[in-house]
């Protein structure tokens, strides 16, 4: 309860224009299962917050609520000044251009080549671009992840790490202000995991994005996080830096830092 109050106090004192994501009293349940209960959260411009929690603690549900894929039962989700649950489809679509989402399973379209995958976010009806512009954007995005040579390959021909990087390139193609990473390193070997984590940091610096990273891979969390929010039993348990939390004696926290 104390932590929650401290966050609210914090928000009052800081400049609200820098606040990109602000979640208040978020509730979401699936039937009898109350996944999120009275969750509060804030993300400022340029910040990179890791949401840490056990599997099934509602981390993915949280990010899906932020991007509007799930509707919360109660509470507000302010993203770039707009409350997501109130938006209609078209308004939501315009917010989503500014919010990138890297899916846990990459979600590359199996039936399309890498190029078509990257072009897909550009086919919004209100984005008008000629072929050369599209091509240069695709090449730039691929350049960011260092995979220009895969442009005409199918996703099934790529390795797990390459797919993750292509997925990141697809997320980056519209140069979003906020990127949501849903377990970006899950299922990757430690070396690739480190590569991806470094890539996330590079992207962060290059485009000055704000990030919410969901993870339980401490290697990744260590590299990426400015701040860590612990999600326990559907609510924000504690919010602090990696170093501070590492010192914690709380069993719920220290179990992650072994």
């Amino acid at each position: 309860m104390n932590t929650e109050l401290s966050i609210q106090n914090d928000s009052n004192s800081s400049n609200t224009s820098d606040l990109v994501v602000c979640i208040r009293n978020l509730e979401k349940s699936f039937g009898e299962n109350h996944v999120l209960k009275n969750f509060n959260f804030k993300l400022y411009k340029g910040e990179s917050i890791v949401v840490l929690g056990k599997s099934g603690s509602g981390k993915s549900v949280l990010v899906k609520c932020i991007i509007g894929l799930l509707y919360p039962d109660a509470g507000t989700i302010q993203v770039l000044g707009k409350n997501i649950p109130d938006l209609n489809h078209d308004e939501l679509d315009r917010i989503r251009v500014k919010v990138g989402f890297l899916f846990q399973s990459n979600a590359l379209y199996d039936s399309m080549t890498v190029r078509e995958n990257l072009e897909f976010p550009l086919r919004r009806h209100w984005i008008k671009m000629d072929k050369e512009e599209v091509n240069s954007l695709v090449m730039e995005a691929l350049g960011n992840v260092g995979l220009e040579e895969t442009i005409d390959m199918m996703p099934s021909e790529l390795s797990g790490g390459m797919r993750k990087r292509i997925a990141l390139a697809r997320t980056l193609i519209l140069k979003p202000e906020i990127i949501l990473y849903d377990e970006p390193t899950t299922g990757l070997d430690p070396i690739t995991s480190t590569e991806i984590s470094n890539l996330i940091v590079d992207v962060q610096k290059k485009y000055n994005t704000s990030s919410i990273v969901i993870s339980h891979d401490m290697n990744c969390v260590k590299i990426v996080a400015n701040k860590i929010v612990m999600l326990v039993d559907g609510t924000n348990y504690i919010s602090d830096t990696y170093k501070e939390l590492q010192k914690s004696k709380d069993i719920k926290i220290s179990s992650f830092f072994k």
Binding site: K64, I67, L69, H89, D93, R96, V97, F101, F103, Q104, S105, N106, A107, L108, Y109, D110, S111, F120, P121, R123, R124
Partner: peptide, 21 residues
């Protein structure tokens, strides 16, 4: 099977997020 696998690998969500219905 196609739509099912797209659903479980979040490709359908990805489309939604990419501004395609």
């Amino acid at each position: 099977a196609e739509l099912g696998s797209m659903k479980v690998t979040e490709q359908i969500d990805a489309m939604e997020v990419s501004g395609t219905n």
